[in-house]
Write a protein that binds this DNA or RNA. Structure first.
Lengths: 247, 247
DNA sequence: GTCGATTCGTATCGACGGTACCACGGATTC
DNA sequence: GAATCCGTGGTACCGTCGATACGAATCGAC
């Protein structure tokens, strides 16, 4: 009949579930709705996936596969620390683009952690192993994996569950640099030009600007009008932001 | 007729729900079980809390109150950065001791973020404001709050949802130090030999302004127009002037 | 004692996750 | 060619959940 007839029932269910999951949270997606959208009876779903959790895990794993594909497409470069940063940003992007899938992966809604989470962990571990092999890590790669992953997941989940409190992704870049900078040692020991370029973290201006901003908050300047002081604070915040190359 | 009769129904329900929540996840705690444990009919619960989510939010808020009490008991010390570390560790301890309450606070299971989360955010922000006032922060306190909170929540949720992957709390200490070290500067920073508690000193602003002015001269900001930068330099000179030249 | 209003619980609804049981179709066997 | 077996698919159902309509009980006022 229809071309869909050729599809496996498993595929139809997975497609329907993924589509519903893109629009509603996992708790609000009922197996009944999935079955109806897939044109399949309920027992079919349970025979194939055993459980609602099993279905969700399968959906997440399949949705994660394309993410892994995009991640594997970015071959390792010569700079593993740069790969690390790219991996972090990729993680954030995936979370923001597939919020419900992501929540399923890293929220306790699923007792069975989908294989996707394990694989993400393994991928991160691989990158950090390469950092360690290059002598760039200040801690064992296993520990570094946990630290980076926990921070990354925390940033993503914070943005997903409290969007009004984290309206801007830039805090994630700051957290990323905090964590990575403290876990890695600069490569300037051998190859790199010894000086971090001006806008990089650790630049002298941001620190000084932040200091002045803090002190001005504690001690408002009488020599400037309130309007001037406000504009000054605004500039100081701009200068205090170590900034990141906006992609 | 029991001695419990004196208790408000609201209290009985809250107690029963908290006790059940200590042993099972929120999804596995049914309002029926809560009502039975509280010796109360179902409509009572819904009249008092309106919703299961409302009940859970109330339970979380009440459970969080004792955490806040313990946190407020630790008065601010002379070293706000040490307070920051203590706050982080307290956060982790609370999460590990009350996993289900904690998950309710920071997992998307609850559409209504309980007031507890907001208050935790505000408390952290307060500590970071004190750090900023002491000139110890390298970023604005709002941004620092988001960074620290996201990392802290990420560490706690990781330990709760993947205990087999995070069997050791020490990674959390590492993440804590990574984040805090990169957001704060040591108390004996160069910008000013400021003592940590000397926030009200009159000389703090001029020194910081002079430092920033010098660094901006060495490294012109790309984020400001030349006109803006010129005006900023002018203001900085004003601020760097330590008042009446009595000395 | 009677009445009215408020409080509380029984009984119930609709929807959910999950399952027992049956109906059909194609390959295998006699 | 007919009977049989087996895997696929669906209908109808169960127990439980969150949430509620409505009646029963309680209490103060007079």
């Amino acid at each position: 009949m229809s071309y869909r007839e050729g599809m496996d029932a498993r595929e139809k269910i997975l497609d329907a579930a993924a589509e519903l999951l893109a629009r509603a949270s996992a708790a609000d997606v009922s197996t009944r709705a999935v079955c109806e959208a897939a044109g399949v009876g309920a027992p079919m779903l349970y025979r194939l996936f055993g459980d609602k959790a099993g279905l969700l895990a399968a959906v997440v794993d399949r949705g994660f596969e394309q993410y892994l594909a995009s991640k594997r497409a970015a071959l390792p470069s010569a700079d593993p620390v740069a790969d690390l940063r790219r991996g972090w940003d990729n993680h954030m992007r995936f979370a923001l683009e597939h919020p419900n899938h992501y929540r399923l992966m890293y929220s306790p809604e699923l007792t069975t952690p989908p294989a996707a989470a394990k694989e993400a962990h393994a991928l991160l571990h691989g990158v950090l192993e390469r950092c360690a092999a290059a002598g760039l890590l200040t801690v064992p790669p296993e520990a570094a994996t946990r630290v980076v992953m926990a921070a990354n997941v925390g940033a993503a989940l914070s943005m997903l569950t409290r969007p009004e409190q984290y309206p801007d992704i830039r805090f994630a870049a700051r957290l990323r640099d905090s964590v990575i900078d403290s876990l890695t040692r600069p490569a300037d020991a051998e190859a790199d030009a010894g000086e971090p370029h001006g806008t990089g973290r650790g630049g002298a201006v941001p620190a000084a600007a932040a200091t002045l901003a803090a002190r001005l908050r504690a001690e408002p300047p009488q020599r400037l009008t309130t309007v001037e002081a406000a504009l000054l604070q605004q500039w100081l915040e701009t200068l205090a932001d170590p900034g990141e190359p906006t992609d």
